[in-house]
Structures are given as structure tokens and as C-alpha cells.
């Protein structure tokens, strides 16, 4: 084994790979099970975008809070939410992260710094400002982080949050996960200012664009932004350009995409393959080590699905609880 050339220890590289693989297999499995009609409701999959969530979240701890969006499974897993509880939640079971009351679009675990996936696009940005404000006022060095797609970056809430964070100098980072499509609508058409760095500059914030399929590019850039925010350097914007392997939601025929686009991207822009190539070429991790993780992850997802299927359903009593702390 040669010297590790990467800015992460071997153990951390293994953790990062395991997280990315867990997200991938979680989503691939949901895709299949949704197709079989086993999952209720709306499901938006993160597959293809793993390097962004994991490259960023490797820098965060439980005190750092993230506000996610409808495509939140990857953020949840990378932020440490329990995978089995997530699966049970998506199946609507009482053992789920949210006791079956939230579902795919509302998974949260504040104790892990996951303020919630969110069905209202752009709504997370003000909440992340609140997390940054709390860190600032309570005097700990946590940060708030808002995850927005290219679509929701057109929401007033997002733009207002950029301004608020700038004037209050909040430790908040706005991540724009630009996968090129707002549901079915192209970012090239729907975003009038064509660069998110320009858009950030319009609010007086520094912005950075990175290749979101390159784990190490995301990791390094996010590390600098996060360090800056923790040290009082204020808010910034990180655009990760990435690829959405699936449609907007499950059941989307994706006819708006180019012919062969998904196949090409899976072949050439798969962040997991790219990561594997880097670490094995450098001789830091072996294919055997990574394959072993693959096997463990598949077993975890299988177990999560099995447990979710056999878990108890909520009862009528659950309908009216958890509305208020007291009423």
C-alpha cells in the first residue's frame, strides 16, 4: 500500500464510500420497490448525486444543522439518520424515523442535525439561516446549511435568505445542487442569471462552483467554505453540478431528457465509480475492500426493507398525537 495522497484518512475514505454506497443502494432499492407498488406516496431519488451530500457532510458534526429538500434521502443518510428507521418511515410504519407521520419528504432527526427534508421547495433556506443564527447567538461554532436544487434557487425564500445571511453575517452555507432539471424544466431556461457564482455575488456572497460528481472536489471546496463559516467568515454559496440518475419522482417517464442520457451518465459520470477509480489507482483502498463494503451495504438495505415490511403500522391513536407539545 502506498502513502495516502488524499486529504482524508483511510478510515474516513471507507466511511465516505460506505455512505455513498448506502445512499445509492437505498435509492436503487426504492426505485425497484416503488415500481412494484410497495411504497405509498411521492418518492424523489438522490441516486447519482451522492458525492455532494457525502463530500459536504464529512465535514459536519451533530451540532451543524442542515435543511434539506424533497430529494432528501441522501442528505439524511450522510447526516447520520438511521437507515432502517428511514426505510420504515418510507413504508409508513410506526417504527419509522417520524413514526410514519412524515414519509419520504419529511424525514428529520434534529439530534443528528437534520432539520428535515422538505416538501416546500426553497423553504429550507430561511430555516438554515435560523440554525446559523442559533449557533451565532448561543456561541457555539456550529453552522447551518441549506440544500436547494437549481429549481428552488428561483424561490423568493432562497434569495431572501442569501440577503439575510449576508446582512447578519450568519454561519450558513447555501448549497445549490444543480442537476440540470427543475422537475422537467431545464436550468438553462429557467434560471435567468446563468451562473450561481454570479447570483451569489449579487448578494455580496462568495460563491464556488464544483464538479459535484467528484467527491474530492466537493470535499475540498466544502471544507474551505465550512471552515470560513465556523471562524466567523460568514455565509457563502457552493454550487455542485451533478447528475440525477432517475426522474423527478418515481413514475416519471423522463421523456424530457435526451436519448441515452441516463445510460451515458451512469457510464461516464457515476460519482461512485469515479471515487473508486481514484482510491484504487492511488493504491489506498483495494477493490476487495470496497467490494466488501458493497456486500455489507446490500445486506443492510435488504435487512432495512425486511424490517420495514414486517414492522407494525400506526394505529388510530397515533392520528391525533404529536401535534403540540401541550394543548
Amino acid at each position: 500500500m502506498s502513502k495516502n495522497p488524499f486529504p482524508l484518512s483511510k478510515d474516513d475514505l471507507l466511511i465516505a464510500y460506505r455512505m455513498m454506497k448506502t445512499i445509492r443502494e437505498f435509492e436503487e432499492r426504492l426505485h425497484v420497490d416503488f415500481g412494484r407498488g410497495e411504497i405509498p406516496g411521492f418518492v424523489h431519488l438522490y441516486a447519482g448525486e451522492e458525492a455532494s451530500a457525502v463530500g459536504i457532510m464529512m465535514h459536519l458534526n451533530d451540532q451543524d444543522q442542515i435543511a434539506s429538500n424533497h430529494r432528501g434521502h441522501g442528505h439524511c443518510i450522510a447526516k447520520g439518520v438511521d437507515v432502517k428507521e428511514m426505510m420504515a418511515e418510507i413504508y409508513g410504519k410506526v417504527s419509522g424515523s417520524c413514526r410514519g407521520k412524515g414519509g419520504s419528504m419529511h424525514i428529520a432527526d434534529l439530534s443528528k442535525g437534520m432539520m428535515g427534508a422538505n416538501g416546500i421547495l426553497g423553504a429550507g433556506s430561511p430555516l438554515a439561516c435560523g440554525a446559523g443564527l442559533a449557533a451565532q447567538k448561543l456561541g457555539h461554532n456550529g453552522i447551518g446549511m441549506s440544500f436547494t436544487g437549481d429549481g428552488a434557487s428561483n424561490q423568493g425564500t432562497f434569495l431572501e435568505s442569501l440577503n439575510l445571511a449576508a446582512v447578519w453575517n450568519l454561519p450558513v452555507i447555501f448549497v445549490v445542487e444543480n442537476n440540470g432539471y427543475a422537475e422537467s424544466t431545464s436550468v438553462d431556461w429557467a434560471v435567468a442569471v446563468d451562473s450561481y457564482v454570479d447570483r451569489a455575488a449579487g448578494f455580496g456572497l462568495p460563491g464556488v462552483t464544483v464538479d459535484g460528481t467528484e467527491f474530492f472536489a466537493v470535499y475540498e471546496a466544502a471544507g474551505e467554505l465550512i471552515k470560513r463559516a465556523r471562524e466567523g467568515g460568514g455565509p457563502s454559496l457552493l454550487e455542485c453540478k451533478m447528475i440525477r440518475f432517475f426522474g423527478h419522482f418515481e413514475g416519471d417517464a423522463q421523456t424530457y431528457k435526451a436519448e441515452g442520457e441516463n445510460e451515458y451518465n451512469r457510464k461516464h459520470h457515476d460519482c461512485l465509480k469515479i471515487f473508486r477509480a481514484h482510491v484504487t489507482k492511488a493504491g489506498v483502498l483495494s477493490d476487495e475492500e470496497l467490494d466488501a463494503i458493497d456486500t455489507q451495504v446490500l445486506a443492510l438495505i435488504d435487512a432495512a426493507v425486511e424490517e420495514a415490511i414486517s414492522a407494525p403500522l400506526p394505529t388510530a391513536d397515533d392520528l391525533t398525537t404529536d401535534v403540540y407539545v401541550s394543548y
Partner: peptide, 23 residues
Amino acid sequence: LMDTPLSESAYIGAAIGAATCGL
């Protein structure tokens, strides 16, 4: 006590976010 920009969505949301984070 903090004055805010004229930006209700952002600061009402920030107050709500901060409430879930210990303030």
C-alpha cells in the same frame, strides 16, 4: 434584538429554524 431586512419569509423562517435549534 435585531432589526431585519424587509424580508418576512427569510426572517420569520429564520426565527422558526432558530427555535428548533435551542433559541
